[in-house]
Design a protein around this nucleic acid. Structure first.
Length: 592
RNA sequence: GGCCAAGUAGUUCAGUCGGUUAGAAUGCCAGCCUGUCACGCUGGAGGUCGUCAGUUCGAGCCUGAUCUUGGUCGCCA
């Protein structure tokens, strides 16, 4: 083992004030420029890059070694900081350079398979395979340290507010509601399995019963579902629970937290309290339970205009109990060509919309894809409903309520995006509250919108038996620019109410006992009223950094097929290991 | 599982109507170069055009299948 230079400074931290100082730096060679007898090396560490200069005051031997440097060699430098004669204002340390007196080469490097530069555009899988190279990029280092800062603020802030960080178990029991569980076989009890937690939900509620009063955890969670740009199978929540707390209490504490995150991480003062929208209002106005309120284009229900119209598509839809809703995109007629509109119509199809009707408002007349069925008078009436002006375009969708919400909700955002209205330095936070307690799934069964531990609104409890779909819940989501940052609820702490909930959801006594018996049991012994919330940490970081993918804010994310390209997981295991677990595999199931 | 897009040099891409030896940039290697910072100049190496099959005198290009990847819908209590 050779000598390791004892570092005095970080590369990116050096500035004009340091001129004249002797410094010792360690880092990677980002770039070597040999001008013949004068060699520059850009030295990189996690804080940035500084130029190291080897000139004729260095020995021949040192110059030769400097000449032998290649990209990504790991070196140490002893040298003197000097003000530059030719400054580089594109480099943070561009006012100075370090004249090398001595150098140690710790490691050489083969030519890296990817460029280590922020503005490159390398295939995602190469980046993930060589993540340890990819993360040398300044923006990856920035993202990781930004993520760390948010975690630190969370720990500090919640600590100051009386929260205790508690770790909950990773090996738990499978409760196959909601997302698929990751399953871990037990060796000791063959044929039995642990599951990895989808969230610490039940355990944090037990912590409340256990008198922890206020709990926080930066918790790894696991869901075996398909991936998306903002969804990974293993992700991190900032998970919280408070005893003796109402919805307002939780919201107040969280607004304080987010205010601090924005102040300390973004240097932005955000106004509290955040606006609150009921779920119903969010859906009616924005077609989404996580609305982006940075722009308008609000939805309107137009059933009343079309009850006696000539257009069979509309009348049939209304008779079938569907709705006709629309949005008016200000300036959209001027912004979108016929081709653009066709594209938009095509895109709304994935949300179930069978067709997209457009109405262009011009100076004199109104042009529409359904002009055959409507007079100018009638079209003007529609335009009036939206207060539409020249150059605006109105889009209409008729279908089941859900389809109109989904497709128009998508459309308003897509139009805003195409018109450049989504400014990434604008942050609009809001709470969506009063979620419905239950939803009906395709088979007509009643399922919990949030989860079965959510407290129904007290005034709706009497509807649980008769009209469960009308019951609203004390559940709330925090939404930022159209992204759900987190969600939570007041929990049920009454054993009888919890049992009733399970019953409404169609769980038998045995199933309840089997799945959640331990929680019901705990509620027998004095459960405090409690409420909580969990943030998707990855999404929060991603949004604040303006990253398009959750992978940019995780050190070692999985690719879309849930593989870890760094280590090669998932992978087969030795037959011996399976034997120990009592697991046999069907040959045809094995991926070759 | 459905839909959309992509796959050509280490990397990012171009490749016209199916036609000579598949190009560029960057990176890499060698030489020259004392103020560069995307250093410059000269030269060089580097290709299973994802894979398989088909059409054709001839396929990077057309057809089919398949694999891989990204995005998305379903899914994500």
């Amino acid at each position: 083992m050779g000598e390791i230079y004892r570092r005095t400074d970080m590369c990116g931290a050096l500035c004009l004030k340091d001129a004249g100082r002797e410094v010792v730096l360690n880092g990677w060679v980002a770039k070597r420029r040999n001008l013949g007898g004068l060699i520059f090396v850009d030295l990189r560490d996690k804080t940035g890059i500084v130029q190291v200069t080897f000139d004729d005051k260095a020995s021949r031997e040192l110059l030769d070694r400097a000449d032998s440097l290649r990209s990504e060699y790991v070196i140490g430098i002893k040298g003197v900081v000097k003000e530059r004669s030719a400054k580089n204002d594109r480099l943070g340390t561009g006012e100075i350079e370090v004249f090398a007196r001595d150098m140690v080469i710790y490691s050489s490097s083969e030519t890296p398979p990817i460029y280590i530069k922020d503005d490159d555009n390398v295939d995602d899988n190469l980046r993930l395979k060589y993540r340890y190279l990819d993360m040398r990029k300044p923006h990856m280092q920035r993202n990781l340290s930004f993520r760390h800062r948010i975690c630190k603020i969370a720990r500090d802030y919640f600590d100051e507010n009386g929260f205790t960080e508690v770790e909950t178990p990773i090996l738990i029991k499978s409760t196959p509601e909601g997302a698929r569980d990751y399953i871990v076989p037990s060796r000791v009890y063959q044929g039995e399995f642990y599951a990895l937690p989808q969230s610490p939900q039940l355990f944090k509620q037990l912590l409340m019963v256990g008198g922890t009063d206020r709990y926080i955890q930066i918790a790894k969670c696991f869901r075996d579902e398909d991936l998306r740009a903002d969804r990974q199978p293993e992700f991190t929540q900032i998970d919280l629970e408070m005893s003796f707390a109402t919805q307002d209490d939780v919201i107040e504490v969280q607004e304080g937290f987010l205010k601090r995150v924005f102040k300390e991480c973004m240097n932005i003062e955000i106004e509290t309290p955040f606006p609150r929208l009921s779920w119903e209002e969010a859906m009616e106005r924005y077609g989404s339970d996580k609305p982006d309120i940075r722009f308008g284009f609000e939805l309107k229900k137009l059933n009343h205009l079309f009850e006696n119209c000539e257009f069979k598509v509309f009348t049939d839809c209304l008779e079938a109990g569907g709705d006709i809703r629309g949005i008016c995109v200000d300036g959209g007629s001027a912004a979108f060509s016929r081709k653009d509109i066709d594209k938009l119509a095509e895109m709304t199809k994935q949300y179930g919309a069978k067709g997209l009707i457009w109405i262009r408002v011009n100076e004199e007349d109104i042009i529409s894809s359904v002009h055959k069925f409507f007079s100018q008078e009638e079209l003007k009436k529609i335009a009036l409903e939206f207060n539409a002006a020249k150059d605006d375009i109105i889009f209409l969708v008729s279908d089941k309520a859900k389809v109109t919400f989904d497709s128009l909700g998508f459309l308003r955002r897509e139009c805003a995006k195409r018109m450049g209205l989504l400014k990434d330095d604008e942050y609009k936070l809001l709470w969506v509250v009063d979620f419905p307690m239950f939803e009906e799934n395709d088979e007509g069964a009643v399922t919990a919108t949030h989860h079965p531990f959510t407290h129904p609104k007290c005034e709706d409890i009497h509807l649980l038996d008769s009209e469960p779909l009308k019951v609203k819940a004390d559940a709330y989501d925090i939404v930022l620019n159209g992204v759900e940052l987190g969600g939570g609820s007041v929990r049920i702490h009454e054993r009888e109410l919890q049992e009733k909930m399970f019953k409404v959801l169609g769980l038998t006594q045995e199933e309840c006992e089997e799945k959640f018996g331990f929680l019901i049991e705990a509620f027998k012994y004095g459960a405090p009223p409690h409420a909580g919330l969990a943030y998707g940490l990855d999404r929060l970081v991603m949004l604040l950094l303006g990253e398009a993918s959750i992978r940019e804010v995780m050190a070692f994310p999985k690719n879309q097929n849930a593989q870890c390209l760094v280590c090669g997981a998932p992978a087969p295991v030795e037959a011996v290991q399976l034997d120990e677990l009592g697991i046999g595999l069907k040959q045809e199931d094995i991926r070759s």
